Amino acid sequence: MQPSPSLPAIPLPAGIRTRHIDDINGLRMHVLEAGFETPGRPCLLLLHGFPELAFSWRRVMPALAEAGYHVIAPDQRGYGRTTGWDVNYDGDLASFRLLNLVRDALGLVSAFGYRTVDAVVGHDFGSSVAAWCAVVRPDVFRSVVLMSAPFAGPPQLAFNTADAPSKPQFDDPVHRELAALPRPRKHYQWYYSTREANADMHHAPQGLHDFLRAYYHHKSADWKDNKPYPLKSWSVNELAKLPTYYVMDLAKNMAETVAEEMPSAGIIAANKWLPDRELAFYSAEYERTGFQGGLQWYRCGTSGVFTAELETWSGRTIDVPSCFISGSHDWGIYQRPGVYEAMQASTCTRMLGCHLVDGAGHWVQQEQPAEVSRLLLQFLRRAGPSAPR
Rank of each mutant, 00 (worst) to 15 (best):
S193R: 04
S193F: 04
S193E: 08
S193A: 14
R195T: 12
R195N: 05
R195M: 10
R195E: 14
E196R: 13
E196G: 02
A197L: 07
A197T: 04
A197K: 00
N198F: 08
N198T: 11
N198S: 02
N198A: 03
N198V: 12
N198E: 10
A199C: 12
A199K: 04
M201Q: 07
M201Y: 05
H202R: 02
H202C: 09
H202M: 04
H203R: 13
H203S: 09
H203Y: 15
H203M: 09
A204T: 06
A204M: 04
A204Q: 05
P205Q: 02
P205R: 01
Q206E: 08
Q206W: 05
Q206N: 04
Q206Y: 01
G207M: 06
G207K: 04
L208G: 01
L208F: 10
L208Y: 05
L208W: 00
H209F: 13
H209D: 03
D210A: 00
F211E: 00
F211H: 03
F211W: 02
R213Q: 12
R213H: 01
A214Q: 00
A214W: 04
Y215R: 11
Y216T: 07
H218E: 15
H218Y: 15
K219G: 09
K219I: 15
K219V: 15
K219T: 15
S220Q: 07
S220D: 06
A221Q: 05
A221W: 00
A221V: 05
D222E: 12
D222P: 07
W223N: 15
W223S: 09
W223E: 13
K224M: 13
K224Q: 15
K224Y: 12
D225R: 02
N226F: 10
N226M: 00
N226Q: 09
K227A: 09
K227I: 08
K227N: 15
P228I: 01
P228H: 08
P228S: 06
Y229E: 14
P230F: 04
P230H: 00
L231W: 07
L231C: 02
L231A: 02
K232I: 00
K232Q: 11
W234T: 01
W234H: 05
S235P: 10
